[in-house]
Amino acid sequence: MKNTTHFTVPALSEEIGFSLIEVMISLVIIALGVLGVGLIMLLSANNNDTARMQSLAALEATSMATAIQANEAYWLNGAGATGSFTETAVTASSTACVNTACNPTQMATSDLTNWGYSIGNSIPDGMGNVACTTIAATTGTPAVTSCNITVGWVQNAMANDHQATTAATASTQSYTLVVQP
């Protein structure tokens, strides 16, 4: 008996390998994945910008709170105890009270001007407001002065849902800090 080996040639329908359609489908899947990663990166950058603005606003509000607490004579007992002061687009810082002695009113004016200048330089479209109120003393309770320090800005936010009609929208954001002088 003779030992013979037979080789068979597979039919065209049984060939091993990838067809052009399979390759195209895999490329579409990879392209969708890369597009998804790109969108996630854009959202991440937008959220990073929002967090940066919130941090800058918190720093600016804390800076004014420190100035208010340092000038108790004006903010607690003076005209600042019932006033509202808004700073926008201050183009120069104040050098008053740097090398000369100032009274509490002059110091508060200098602090507000420098604060407005700092906001304008660090926060695009920034705005600062200090509004103080005093609750009168009653029997057994001293008067209480409270100041709301608000820092606002315009934030361009990227739409993150499929129902949004525009790619980016501008909204006014604010950070408020309450301080007692």
Rank of each mutant, 00 (worst) to 15 (best):
Y74D: 08
W115G: 01
A131N: 12
E72L: 09
A67W: 02
T62E: 14
A89E: 13
C97S: 10
S84N: 13
A92F: 07
L59R: 10
Q69Y: 14
Y74P: 01
T105Y: 03
D125V: 06
T91R: 10
S55T: 13
T134K: 12
Q54G: 08
A89I: 00
N103P: 01
A92R: 11
L43M: 11
E60L: 09
T133W: 04
T88K: 08
T88A: 11
V34K: 04
G126K: 04
L32T: 11
V130G: 01
P124I: 05
L43Y: 13
A96D: 13
P124N: 12
R52K: 12
N114M: 09
T82R: 03
T134H: 07
T109V: 09
N46W: 01
A81T: 02
T62V: 00
L32H: 06
A57F: 01
D111L: 01
N129T: 15
N48K: 06
A61Q: 01
A58C: 08
A45T: 10
I119T: 08
P124E: 09
L39F: 07
T66P: 00
L43R: 05
T82C: 06
A57P: 04
N77I: 03
T105N: 12
C97G: 11
Q106Y: 04
V130W: 01
N103Y: 03
L76H: 09
T113E: 12
G116I: 02
Y74A: 05
I135K: 15
A89P: 03
S118K: 10
T50H: 06
W115P: 02
S44G: 12
A58Q: 15
L42W: 06
L76N: 10
T91P: 04
T86I: 11
C102G: 11
L43I: 02
S44F: 06
T50L: 09
M53W: 01
L32A: 14
N46I: 00
I29F: 14
N121Y: 02
P104C: 08
N47F: 07
A92T: 14
C102H: 09
N103S: 10
R52L: 13
N46V: 01
A108N: 06
C132Q: 03
I30T: 12
T95Q: 13
A79R: 11
G128Q: 03
A81G: 06
E87G: 02
G83A: 15
C102S: 11
V98S: 13
V37H: 05
D125W: 01
M64W: 05
Q69N: 15
P124A: 13
L76D: 05
I135A: 15
S110H: 07
E87C: 02
T133P: 05
G128V: 04
D125Y: 11
D111W: 00
V34P: 02
S94P: 06
T100E: 15
N103K: 01
T133F: 05
M41D: 11
N99R: 07
L59S: 12
A89H: 08
S110F: 05
L35C: 08
W115T: 02
I29G: 14
G38R: 02
M64F: 09
Y74V: 00
L59V: 03
N71A: 08
I68Y: 00
S118L: 10
S122R: 13
S84L: 02
V98N: 10
L35F: 15
L112Q: 05
A51W: 05
T109Q: 14
Y74K: 04
T105V: 10
S118N: 13
S93K: 06
